[in-house]
């Protein structure tokens, strides 16, 4: 498995893990009617995700430095382009749904989290598309 495929797996696993915990915690707090802070939990999730991703990528690069230094080639670019396109369509669809929800007057905390969920959806779609692209052409 090449470094860029490992990177896609790291992005997928860390995004699902961190935002999975975040959205479960948010959903529970919302369902029980507890006060839900908006800025602090979101900022914490973003910072934790960034730390996990940076540490994982540095670790993966340290385990296979030659793979990490390998140039991005035409296959990587083709896979990235297809994944970015899929991620964009997911993002676009999600934003349309979130805007519709805002138009129906959902609470600001829910609207903000819906938009965050849409961004997560875009990133997850992109990572899944990258992994599928690498797996399809894996030797």
């Amino acid at each position: 498995m090449g470094f860029r495929e490992k990177r896609a797996w790291i992005m997928l696993a860390s995004t699902l893990g961190v935002y999975g915990v975040y959205f479960i915690a948010f959903g529970r707090a919302w369902a029980t009617g507890q006060g839900v802070g908006l800025f602090a939990p979101m900022a914490t999730a973003i910072v934790v995700l960034a730390i996990i991703q940076i540490m994982s990528l540095v670790g993966a690069a340290a385990l296979a430095p030659s793979e990490a230094r390998a140039p991005v080639d035409e296959r990587d670019r083709a896979i990235d382009q297809a994944a970015a396109r899929a991620g964009f369509y997911a993002l676009q669809s999600g934003v349309a749904l979130a805007l519709a929800a805002v138009a129906f007057g959902i609470a600001p905390a829910l609207a903000a989290n819906a938009l965050l969920a849409v961004m997560v959806l875009g990133e997850v779609t992109r990572a899944v598309w990258q992994i599928a692209g690498y797996r399809r052409s894996a030797a």
Partner: peptide
């Protein structure tokens, strides 16, 4: 040729 080993294998 400036590619990754995985691409050559593919």
């Amino acid at each position: 040729i400036g590619m990754t080993r995985q691409t050559v294998a593919a």
